[in-house]
Structure formats: C-alpha cells, structure tokens
Design a protein around this nucleic acid. Structure first.
Lengths: 194, 194
DNA sequence: CAAAAAAGTTGACCTATGGTAATAAACTAC
DNA sequence: GTAGTTTATTACCATAGGTCAACTTTTTTG
C-alpha cells in the first residue's frame, strides 16, 4: 500500500475502488497536521472544506453574543468535522473549530466532494447515509436537551462518548451539555457521593 | 397533466423527468388523507415510510418516561415527515406523529426510496441536499437551545415559522421550545406589555 | 345556542441551574 | 521542583422556569 492509498483505506473503510478511482480520491484530499489548541476555523471565515479526523480530537463551538461558548460537536478519529451550515451553503462560518488534541486530518473541498459524487454515485450514497445517521443523532440530542435533566444528559454523554470524555476538559463537556462548569462540578460531586 | 403526474410535480418541483421515470415515481407513492387529531404513527411501531405533506399540518413528538410530550418537528405543506431515526434504521418508532390540521400526504417506503435512488442518481443528490439542509437547521436549533432564553427562542420561532404558528396550539409551541404552557403564557404576556 | 371540553392564563410557591467570587487542585514550563 | 497558569471545586445568593391549583376564555359538539 502506497502512502497515498492509505488515505482512501482510512477514510472509506467499507468501500472498494478501481485504481483510477483511487487516483481521483487521492487528488481530492489533502493531509494536514494540527497542533493542540490551534484553531482550524474561525467564525466569519468562508468555509470551503470539511475534514476527516484520522487522529486527535477537535470541537466545533459557537460564541453567543453574550460571549459564552457552546460546544456543538466533538470529533475524534473516524469522524468528520466542519461548520456544516456554512459548508453546505458555501457561506461564512458561524462557529469556531478548535483542536483539543494534536490531530491529523484529511481535508476536502465542497467542490471536490461534488465532483466525486458525479464520478462515483456510490460515494454519494455513502455520504447520504452518513448524513442520515448524523441527522438522527442530532435529533436524539434535541430530544435529550428537551426531556432530560443536566445530570441525565451528563450520564448519557459519558456513557455514549467515553472516548471523547477522556480527551476533553470538563468545561468543554459543560458547554456541550448546556450548563456551567460549576453546575457540572456539583453534578459530578453528587454522582460520586451517591 | 394527469392526476398521477400531479404527485411528481408537487413533490419534485425543481426536477424534470422522462415519461418512464414519472411512471416509476407514481408507482412508488401512495396518496393519503388524514383527519385532524388522528395519529399517523405511534411509538413502538415499525417505521417503513416517510411522508410528503401536500396540505395540512402535523407534528412529531416524543413522550418522555415522565409522561411529558416534547415536539421534535412540525411539518406543513412541502415538508417531509417521519420518525427519521426509525425510518433510516428500519427500526421501531420512538416518537408519535399527530395530524394537527387535516392533511393530504404522499407516502413512500424506504425500500422504494432506495430503488428510486438506484434508478435516478440525481434523486439521491436531491435528497442528500435536503438532508444537509435539515441537518443544518437541527444544528441551529441545538445552538438556539443552548444559547438562548425561552423568550428569545419563542420570538425566533414565530419569526422563522409564521405559517406554523398559525396552525398549532400554544402548548405545541411550548413543547417545541422546551418550556411549560404556563411559562409560554407568561412570556407572551410580557411581550404584549413591553 | 347552550353545555361540555379543551386551551390558555394567573398566582403562590419551589427547584434546578446560573452568577460571582474565593479557593484548591492539576498541569506546564522553565 | 517551583512558579505560574489553567482547570475544577465549593459556597452563597439570584433567577428563570417548573409545579400545583384555581380560574377564564375559546372551541367543539349536540
């Protein structure tokens, strides 16, 4: 396996490709390394790309007018990350993306994605299904936010994403759950005592 | 225009089709009428279908273990509705779908959808893009739930969905916003006074 | 149109979570 | 290993929104 084809087998584990397809895929992606605490994207920037996380941990967060941060998404190995609202509309980012753990990413532009879809319809199927799963999990999160207490949401989070919990600070988790770090701290204390 | 092709031009306004494609589409959809207050879907039922709303108003809601209802989605003309988590996974519904205003729907099964995607890849593009927009709007809702007060979310709702507001009860809106009817009532009172 | 049912409002009180601030603990870097 | 910085905890008070219960208004139905 050449270093180039590594990209393809890493990102599209479940698919197989003809040599010329591999060539096309390899040309569409760009590998990049990101140090801890760096910003991959800032609000108001034009969003051309989405990123596949090969290694590391990142988060997408929104800064409200009052200055408070709200984490919308974490991403660890095998996840995709971007400001998707902006990416899909080719518009400017509302959110920031921060590297939480030193990361290796594969970047691809929206234009190149669309070309790949044209060239390989089964790729479009693949991403449509990914999109469907992402949609379903966001829907679950909305339900959770509407129906559960902060304690329930926290338990649910550490149960569902144990690999993320290990990589991120408690204040990242708090901002994902929609509570303050102080509240999370109280919740954690109660859980230890119980 | 025959009554059959009406389905196609209603649902896929932006696309054009060959006669044999229209035939295929027409065979895949089933038209149905739904009276006000009826249930289109109940939790625990197997979900095979999604529905295009030609007319009327429906809502998808989740009933939490404590018995409280949480509205996840409204749908008016031109929207699609289902329990998508269950539809995508061909699993059992977590949610209920209720007809709020007498409705005309076009129903299609997941299997038929997949066949259509095979036969017409541009249909898959069409739905992938729809999915992307739905994903983006759910993301915005998560951000709103995390960062805004109940009053802000209410104002945002009536501004964004004036056509829905007219069709639904206040307690539907409250359950969509994640507050009680009493709180919504207080919020409305304050807004009138201000 | 009258009665019944459903929806919406209001008030008194309660609770989960937020805000501020001080402190402690855990990392980081020299 | 110590100083400095970042992160987490704790305490005390404030507040948005929830709960319960009564009441009013609107809608539905015969």
């Amino acid at each position: 396996m050449t270093p180039e084809t590594e990209i393809v087998t890493t990102i599209f584990k479940d698919l197989s490709f003809k040599p010329e397809e591999i060539q096309l895929l390899v040309c569409s992606f760009e590998k990049l390394h990101l140090p801890k605490n760096s910003l991959l994207l800032e609000a108001d920037q034009q969003v051309y790309d989405q990123y596949f996380v090969a290694e590391g941990c990142l988060r997408t967060y929104y800064i409200a007018p009052d200055g408070k941060e709200h984490t919308v998404q974490f991403a660890i190995a095998d996840w995709w990350i971007s400001d998707y609202t902006a990416f899909f509309n080719s518009s400017k980012a509302l959110m920031h993306i921060e590297c939480i753990q030193e990361a290796t990413l594969y970047k691809i532009s929206k234009n190149d994605m669309e070309s790949l879809y044209q060239a390989m319809p089964r790729l479009e199927s693949y991403f449509r299904k990914k999109m469907e799963r992402a949609f379903a999990s966001f829907q679950k999160r909305i339900i959770a936010n509407l129906s559960q207490s902060a304690t329930e949401r926290y338990l649910n989070f550490i149960h569902t994403y144990p690999n993320i919990e290990q990589n991120v600070k408690n204040y990242h988790i708090a901002s994902y759950l929609g509570i303050t770090t102080q509240s999370l701290s109280r919740i954690r204390k109660e859980l230890v005592q119980a």
